[in-house]
Design a binder for these strands. Structure first.
Lengths: 110, 110
DNA sequence: GCCGTACATCGCCAATCAGTTATATTTCCC
DNA sequence: GGGAAATATAACTGATTGGCGATGTACGGC
């Protein structure tokens, strides 16, 4: 479900940090640039990637561009995770079973 | 929470496909190679990446290596998503509110 | 109208990456 | 023990990526 654009956008720590910052409030490019500690063009490049992936939206306010979070693509990522959830649930189940059965199932190994 | 290794491992479609295949059952390298349509070394390289990220585990069975899913790192990714869930929940709320309020709140725009 | 500010885009470079073929290593089978 | 099968690693290559400084563009204030 989740597009490759979403995945590769999220593969970079700086871009994940931008999203994290945008959960608090929308911010303009200047703010994000100082927060990231990158050059302004570097920041703009990351923002372009995030924009293309649909993870952020821009509002033009005078000469500033205010970026805000658009979490919708993350919902697809959440969907993608669905088939895997049973595995860590099962792991918890297995742990419980293991604790119950330790004494009389000596062949079991982890 | 989720490490960069996890994110970058998942950024590749072939590797995500491997994980998908391993939800059904463990598979050896030969199976995965034909499924991916890559060369055997290419497949091995992806498997190495997944191994390093802790997303798969290997069992040595004779001359074959049977790979199985280890979903634990995906749980961290699930945790990472947590702070964002309220945004698409809120979006649903906003939609509901919009439907309720359409007639008497004409300034609203999406 | 002009200048400064805010941002995007461009052109460049070094590093990483995904793919390949060739080779080494281990195990199974005869 | 010798050969074939399964897999990993090595060495290479072209494409992509993340960073930068330089430049272009649009808006606000004077």
């Amino acid at each position: 479900m989740a597009s490759t654009a979403t995945w590769s956008a999220l593969s970079d720590p700086h871009r994940r940090y931008v999203l994290e910052l945008l959960t608090e409030r929308p911010r303009d490019v200047g703010e994000l640039t100082t927060a990231l500690g990158l050059s302004q063009p570097g920041t703009s490049k990351h923002l372009r990637t995030l924009r293309t992936a649909g993870l952020v939206r821009v509002r033009v306010v005078g000469q500033r561009r205010v970026y805000e979070l658009n979490a919708a693509p993350l919902a697809e990522l959440d969907d993608w995770l669905a088939p895997y959830r049973r595995f860590w649930d099962r792991r918890l189940d297995a742990l419980g079973a293991h604790l119950d059965a330790t004494a009389h199932d000596p062949d079991r190994e982890e």
